[in-house]
Design a protein around this nucleic acid. Structure first.
Length: 434
RNA sequence: CGGGGAGUAGUUCAGAUGGCUAGAACGCUGCAUUUGGGAUGCAGAGGUCGCAGGUUCAAGUCCUGUCUCCCCGACCA
């Protein structure tokens, strides 16, 4: 294999990484996250509310989802349910007519009339798969509690997609389903998940601005569900925030009845806009009943199963984080989910000098946690601007000037402080990888 | 689904009242010069003007239909 030597921004020794930034992005898209993510080459719009995750965006999405896996795998095993779902199951739960955002796919189409005429639902959520699936695993009280999760592309035919990744027709979501013998057991697990979600938001750098928010249970239940709302000026939701008690209330449940029920004076609370990045629901018997999901008790009785479901919008999180931390120069990624920790910028006329040699060594030693801008046909200014736009946590400039000053010029994306050090000092101080 | 705006080069856009052999900037290709904050010069390539009908000697421009995108609202397990 020939050495990767194209004049590009290199990533992980890929021959050609396909990483490109764009100077002009249509002003049509108003939302900051879409503007920046398109400009910086993280996503590409395909249809209204539908995006491709290009090289850098795919990396960020994977990082968010792998972090999510670390937390969820403590409590349930990962599976991958089908995206196409049988219409019959949706008839059983009576959601075929009641959910407005269903996409329907038909087996018989213009391309192949030989196929049957079966109708499918393009999965917007997975209770209709998860519940019957659980029947295969749960027979006895000995099988409980039980939980599994998946991370998958969901499809919802939103009337109006908007705000880039914040609200699409196709988006990524983690959904976990839990099954319990009793309500007490369910509630215990529900609290565990709340804590686990907050730990995840801490890793994502969002903990300080994310609040558990009481919300409508939807057509799942009469009980409240709990949303995780991240403060964001461009968010879709208005929440009533009680900072003192660290809890919030979605505007949709703010009324006199709930004021009395909860003993809360909503007028005293702060109204803020936020984006719903997660939502967890007590499902009670809402799905176990129609699918006849039961277990046998120690005494030999047959009882229905308590269920809960726990959603997290991984692609929406990417949009929220992009938008929340961005500054006038571009994206600013939290270290755990950035496409790379280090963005190496080489200042070299022809990639034949000492700056290039040192950059190459740096890139090879750091390995997968670095991007290397080794382009020679663009000016330094353009490379520095691109580094700011892409938003990796650290920028490492290797140039005649930096070498004169002691080696590598190190600057954090979120700071203006510039330091000079050699490779050993760099790794001692900031680590080789994340 | 209601209201508003827009579809012209790879991208961002300009092309009142029909005359276009369709432009600019950026990007792209080649050569030379250039390298610390979005280079310089020279030479090039690149378009069924969203799609389908219609009016006209003549349509990017006018009419009808249709599709798509964006924004506001309604909706949003």
């Amino acid at each position: 294999m020939k050495e990767a030597s194209t004049d590009n921004i290199q990533f992980r020794n890929e021959f050609s990484s396909g990483i490109k930034t764009y100077q002009d992005v249509s002003k049509e898209q108003e939302s900051l996250n879409a503007q920046l993510l398109i400009k910086a080459g993280f996503i590409n719009p395909e249809l209204s509310g539908v995006y491709t995750y290009t090289r850098l965006g795919c990396e960020v999405l994977k990082n968010i989802e792998n972090l999510t896996r670390e937390h969820m795998s403590k409590w349930g095993g990962e599976i991958l349910m089908s995206s196409l779902q049988p219409v019959e199951s949706w008839e059983i739960t009576d959601r075929l007519e009641n959910m407005s955002s269903l996409f329907e796919a038909r087996g018989a189409n213009d391309i192949s009339r030989k196929l049957n005429s079966s109708r499918y639902i393009l999965g917007p959520t997975h209770e209709e798969i998860a519940t019957p699936l659980a029947k295969r695993y749960i027979k006895s009280y000995r099988d409980l509690p039980f939980a599994f999760y998946q991370i998958q592309t969901k499809f919802r035919n939103e009337a109006r997609p908007k705000s880039g990744l914040l609200r699409g027709r196709e988006f990524r979501m983690k959904d976990l389903y839990s099954f319990h013998a009793s309500e007490e057991d369910f509630l215990e697990f529900y609290e565990i998940m709340k804590k686990e979600y907050m730990l995840l938001f801490e890793d994502l750098g969002l903990a300080d601005d994310t609040f558990i928010t009481l919300a409508d249970g939807g057509n799942f239940t009469e009980k409240f569900s709990h949303e995780f709302q991240t403060l964001l000026p461009q968010g879709e939701d208005i929440i009533y925030l009680d900072r003192k008690n660290n809890i919030a209330y979605n505007k949709e449940i703010v009324n006199e009845e709930n004021a009395n029920r909860l003993g809360v004076n909503f007028d005293e609370l702060e109204q803020v806009t936020a984006s719903e990045v997660g939502n967890i629901f007590p499902l009670d018997f809402k799905y176990s009943q129609p699918f006849d999901l039961t277990y046998t008790t120690k005494e030999g009785d047959t009882k229905p199963i308590y269920m809960g479901c726990y959603g997290l919008g991984t692609s929406r999180l990417m949009g929220v984080i992009a938008e929340k931390f961005a500054d006038e120069k571009g994206l600013v990624w939290p270290e755990r989910i950035a496409p790379a920790k280090y963005h190496i910028v080489t200042v070299s006329k022809d990639n034949k000098d000492i700056a290039h040699e040192k950059s190459k060594e740096l890139f090879e030693v750091i390995g997968k946690d670095s991007l290397w801008d080794r382009r020679t046909k663009v000016t330094v200014g353009e490379k520095l601007n691109d580094a700011d736009l892409i938003g990796c946590p650290f920028r490492l400039v290797v140039s005649p000037k930096s070498i004169e000053n002691g080696g590598i010029e190190v600057k954090r994306r979120a700071s203006d402080v510039v330091e000079y050090m050699d490779m050993e000092e760099l790794f001692n101080k900031y680590g080789k990888t994340r």
